[in-house]
Computed example of a mutant assay.
Amino acid sequence: MTRTRGLLTAAAVPLIMMAGCARSGEAGSAPAAEPIAESAPANPVVLVRIAQQGGFVPANFAYGRLPEITVYSDGRVISNGPVPLSYPGPALPNLLVSRITPARAQQWADDAVKAGVKSGADLGTPGVTDIPDTVLTATSQGKTETVRVNALRQARPDDPYLTAEQRAARKKLAAYADELTGFADSVSSPAPDVYRPLGVVALVEAYVAGDVEQPEKAWPGPALPGEELNAGTGLHCVAVTGAEKDTILAAAGAANQLTPWTSGGKQWKVTFRPLLPDETGGCAALKGAR
């Protein structure tokens, strides 16, 4: 049998990012709430996280992408908000934080385990390629379970590479994931706030001019390109916190994904990755990204 090649190519990434972040309501609209500063607890507990890993994507996207949704034990729910349907897109992701009760947050984690989030579970490998894995993590009764599912939503219902049991398990997990992300997409009361991180990482690479000429901006932070993130990625990393982080976020708010940033007499491409409450250690928090 011939495996079908997936359509997730580097050229499609900007469109996929914009589509994946869209919510119900006016296209490209953003919440009216003012940004708020998030004070992370000493040891924030991730109760549920749904993220994408792998796939045929460029390095800056693989290391810079954010989870679809993260639920914390204190009731914070951090998810991707809507972004303008334009190209190039804004430099900064639109992260939103909603708040539910800790009891409801824990129930979601318990439900995740019931839905099949269990370490070591075999969900099979469908007959598609270049599609990211959906990674679901849940902490229930003091134990953390993680399951990795390739092409969770893209596999055909009758995929011959999957057993009937695997197809059924995938359907159950997909229904749970859709329910959870559906909450983030539809929550309106109270309205979510704009998530303001305690730290942000700049993923830096050499700038290559494209077909759409962009005005350059002077980099307002530590000298670029910074330390190499991982050998062979072509990416360097600079992490900032405090007032310097606020300066960089303000500058990035007036930039887009293709803005050339100047530092040390050179132009650089920068991908901005806000750090979540459980992500500590600056650049080290992203070294294991896939």
Rank of each mutant, 00 (worst) to 15 (best):
A115T: 09
A115R: 05
A115E: 09
G116V: 03
G116Y: 00
S119M: 03
G120H: 09
G120K: 08
G120Y: 08
A121N: 03
D122V: 01
D122L: 00
G124S: 02
G124F: 02
G127H: 07
V128K: 04
V128M: 11
T129F: 12
I131S: 00
P132Y: 08
P132D: 05
T134F: 01
T134D: 03
V135W: 00
V135A: 00
L136Y: 09
L136A: 11
L136H: 04
A138N: 01
A138M: 01
T139W: 04
S140R: 12
Q141P: 04
G142R: 14
K143Y: 10
T144Q: 09
E145C: 01
E145A: 07
T146H: 02
T146A: 02
T146M: 02
V147N: 07
R148G: 00
V149N: 00
A151P: 09
A151G: 08
A151E: 06
A151W: 09
L152P: 09
L152T: 07
L152G: 11
L152H: 10
Q154E: 02
A155S: 14
A155W: 06
A155Y: 11
P157V: 08
P157H: 02
D158W: 10
D159M: 04
P160F: 00
Y161D: 12
L162M: 13
T163Y: 03
E165S: 11
E165A: 12
Q166N: 06
Q166M: 06
R167F: 04
A168I: 02
R170M: 12
K171P: 01
K172H: 09
K172I: 06
L173G: 01
A174S: 14
A175W: 01
A175H: 08
A175S: 15
A177L: 06
A177S: 13
D178V: 08
D178G: 07
D178C: 05
E179V: 11
L180H: 05
T181Q: 01
G182I: 12
G182K: 12
A184P: 14
A184D: 14
D185Q: 13
D185E: 14
S186W: 06
S186N: 08
V187S: 04
S189A: 15
P190I: 15
A191S: 15
A191Y: 10
P192S: 03
P192H: 06
P192D: 05
D193F: 13
D193Q: 14
V194Q: 12
Y195M: 10
P197I: 03
L198W: 12
L198N: 07
G199K: 11
G199D: 10
G199M: 12
G199T: 12
G199Q: 15
V200E: 15
V200S: 14
V201C: 13
A202I: 12
A202R: 06
L203S: 11
L203I: 09
V204A: 10
E205N: 11
A206I: 12
A206H: 11
V208F: 02
V208H: 03
A209Y: 11
A209N: 10
G210Q: 15
D211P: 15
